Amino acid sequence: MSALARTARSLRRTLLQAIPTVLGIIILNFFLLQLAPGDAADLMAGEAGSATAESMAALRTRFGLDNPVLVQLANYLNNLAHFSLGFSPRYGMPVMDLIGQRLPGTLTLMAMALAIAILIGLALGSVMSFFAGRLPDRLLSIFSLLFYSIPGFWIGLMLIVLFSVTLGWLPSGGAGTIGSNLTGWAAIVDKARYMVLPATSLALFYVAIYARLTRAAMLEVRSQDFVRTAYAKGLSPVAVTLRHVLRNALIPITTMAGMHIGGMLGGAVVVETVYSWPGLGRLAFEAVMGRDYTVLLGILLLSSLLVIFANAVVDLLQTWLDPRIGEH
């Protein structure tokens, strides 16, 4: 089977699985949020300080909150059919526009965090597998598992204390220097300075997972016959590790990376709140506090689509790493 045929087959299989999954997620999320106490009208009327039965009823009628649950679900599905995520009563703007403003920040943060976690995890796992059972292996195992055991918000606060308060190297929060009007390379550097701490804080939890997984995978691959054959051909240890061992060890790493996209979206809620990063995680937290369930439904739907897309990319990557996968 050609590479193009394997790719098309993998994409077709992913799409067929994604359609019922997305429908199930939409309906399940909708009914789960209906069980939550209160709504946006309660909070908005309370903040106005002049909540009356008439004003509450007017708000609920305006935003369709007084309709039966099944009617609200039908209206929501009708909006989705017209590529609309509805209107946010809290922010007074379409949910699609609101999410579009926050999405780039979260995607950039997650991409940087995932890159940091995979690169450090691969490096630590490779060293641990080379010194398996010896002192460096044990020390690095303890070091990596330390970050796995510490809560993410505490790591974030300690990074702020060390690098922002004590050393003064990096900003403690935000997404860029206010009023700087930087462009080009200077703007990229400024953005990167604000992203280092939240991305690192989000990544450290996953470093231990990738390090241990890389160690186990590389030890297993090294025992295979094709690796011994590569050594017998006279290839150097570095060439064998990069061309044979590491490539095959990447298959479980990519699988876990695809599964961790959803976890990173959840972790982004804490990290973006700690660092005041304007992203989807912080928007989800604000939507929960403001009882703006229309926004929350949009974020949950988009998060589901991101996870499905990430797993489709992982399937394609694994097909490239091991062509035999696409044949099953």
Rank of each mutant, 00 (worst) to 15 (best):
P136V: 00
I25P: 07
R193E: 14
G46E: 02
R13C: 02
T106E: 03
L280W: 06
A284H: 09
M256Y: 09
W169G: 09
T14V: 07
W277Y: 15
V71W: 06
V271R: 12
A192H: 02
N181W: 03
I155H: 03
L202Y: 15
L77Y: 07
V227D: 02
S276K: 10
L33I: 02
R228G: 01
Y206M: 09
W320D: 04
V189W: 15
G279N: 12
F83S: 13
R6A: 14
P252S: 08
G234L: 05
V22D: 08
V221A: 03
T241H: 15
L280Q: 01
M44L: 15
S55A: 12
L305M: 14
R60W: 01
R222F: 05
L213V: 10
P89E: 05
S10T: 15
T294Y: 02
A208P: 03
E220M: 09
L197W: 06
L103Q: 09
F226C: 06
L11F: 08
L70S: 08
Y210V: 04
N67E: 15
G156P: 11
R13K: 10
I209W: 05
A111P: 00
F226M: 05
S141Y: 06
N248R: 08
P252T: 02
G64E: 08
L170F: 15
W154Y: 10
D66N: 14
I27C: 14
L235T: 04
T61R: 12
K191W: 03
A187C: 12
G174I: 02
G279M: 11
L250W: 01
A187H: 14
F163P: 14
R193P: 01
I209F: 05
Q34V: 04
P323I: 11
T14W: 13
A249R: 06
T7C: 02
G262D: 11
P20V: 03
H328D: 10
A268R: 10
V295E: 04
L59W: 01
L157Y: 04
A199N: 11
F130L: 14
R6L: 10
L80K: 07
A199P: 09
D292C: 08
V269W: 08
T177D: 07
V227R: 00
F131I: 03
Q17W: 15
M1S: 15
S172M: 10
I253S: 03
D39C: 05
V288K: 00
E47H: 08
